[in-house]
Design a protein around this nucleic acid. Sequence first.
RNA 1: GGGCCGUUAGCUCAGUUGGCAGAGCACCUGACUUUUAAUCAGGGUGUCGCAGGUUCGAGACCUGCACGGCCUACCA
Length: 532
Amino acid sequence: MCLLSRRELVKSLNLVPEKSRHFRAGCLALQSFCYILCKMASRLDRIAQQRRQKLERIRSRGIEPYPYVYHRSHTTKQALALLNKQEAKSQAKARVVSLAGRITANRPMGKISFLDLRDGAGKIQLCFYQNRLSEETLALFQDLDIGDIIGASGKLFRTKSGEPTLEVESLALLAKSLQPLPEKWHGLADVDKRYRQRYLDLIANTEAMGTFRVRSQVIAAIRQFLNQRGFIEVETPVLQASAGGALANPFTTHHQALDQDFYLRIALELHLKRLLVGGFDKVYEIGRIFRNEGVSTQHHPEFTMLESYEAYVNYQDVMTMLEEMVSEVCQQVMGTTKVRFGGDTVNLKAPWKRLTLRDAVKKHSGIDFVTYPTADGLRDRMRSLKIEVDPKKNWAKLVDELIKSFVKPKLIQPTIIFDYPVSMSPLAKTKRDEERVAERFQAIAGGLEIANAYTELNDPIEQRKRFEEQLKERQGADEERWTIDEDYLLALEYGMPPAGGLGVGIDRLVMLLTNQAAIREVILFPQLREKE
RNA sequence: GGGCCGUUAGCUCAGUUGGCAGAGCACCUGACUUUUAAUCAGGGUGUCGCAGGUUCGAGACCUGCACGGCCUACCA
């Protein structure tokens, strides 16, 4: 009310509008003055102020609007089941139940009001007959708002239209809501707001809630699958003196007391393989890893990775396990192995199609990269297909480019692409008789890279050689932070059993199952730039 | 990092050629005893992202900035 535009200011003060800069400056000063005067009052919008008034009114009647506990007898879901049971018996003796949750809608109908109550299990309709409520309950009811969290008890019945309903006899306010909820029909659409205030997204958009339930169930099902097969879940350090196991840029941090810089881990791999050395046969970790790289619909600076390592098996065995795991997890969580993803239906049922990387690239780009063993040769061939090629890319990166632009987008149904060039797989064992090929595979579905796995390199001398080559390449790119993980090499020197390792991007798997195109949709609180 | 687009009421969105800032939901007042996007009658609640500029006049046009989205680049 105090915040007037210049036009309104002119109107309200009966001024004759002038065009001069002095007049404008004067208006500005006056506006600023009003603004400062009213700032305290206007910080809360109208609705929040009204609700604060209700809050005070409730308090003044001796009711604590934020009490400590409310022991409900049923969830909304249990209440629905109870009503069905009640109705099945001819003796329909309704018992009193108590429910708790958030009010999400209000439909007043004269002396009856219908409200929706939502809890973690679902939703049920409440009904208040104003003439049947006690004076105190009626007063409290009249100060309720959509968004408030309440406890309500009474008897269950069904309305004329068949809606399961609780006729409320007694009412408890459990938390007064001071902010209005997003619009009930369109929900919350502002992407920025949905991420920053995810709780509103969860309240307003049931699909968002569903996505994160699936995420939770997927992780639980994976744990169950691996535990049943004798895998042991472990936890390894996030803070590491040397960030290895992948080629990504790490985040750095600092330990005060030790006065030492640390990296946040970029992979789980090297510590899990130390545990194979230590004698665990089957280990896995589901953990957050951090990569200081660009963000996109498929990349996020922190994401969740499953890595598992099993001694005495090779990548062929891992392929089979992966197929079975994804297939079973999907069946268990979604109730089917067929999921919609974009315009496609992806069937994750095992077994999956398998083909070599060489054949896959040949099939989808027409280039047989084996016949172009040098970076220059391959680059020329790619240019002849009018592919734009970064001249700084080495041979391995050019092959990766071919995979990314030709192979991945074509692979909608789950496919295992195996046998990768050694030069792009420094931690994988070379294939017998094929020096340039590593026993490595990636699984792709819906065009998303879901998993990466290999027969683990356990020859310490060969591993050192590969690390050194990698380091040379990195130092060429003027990256000084890269060091060789000597401790890991020492562990290998004690002897690591032959093993098959697997990495699964949990976020991307959840994207696939929940038909989400952006990784941020499956991360509860995605990283955003700070506002203001 | 580059390109394109966006930011208007608590929410979802209109806003024409530069001419008094407007709809639905939510909210407030009233009616209504089985509603369910309840309905009906009334009420607009706003620093038009921020800062400048052009203009008699800017939500709109120009410049810069912030935040976001998509594409691209980077990224095992």
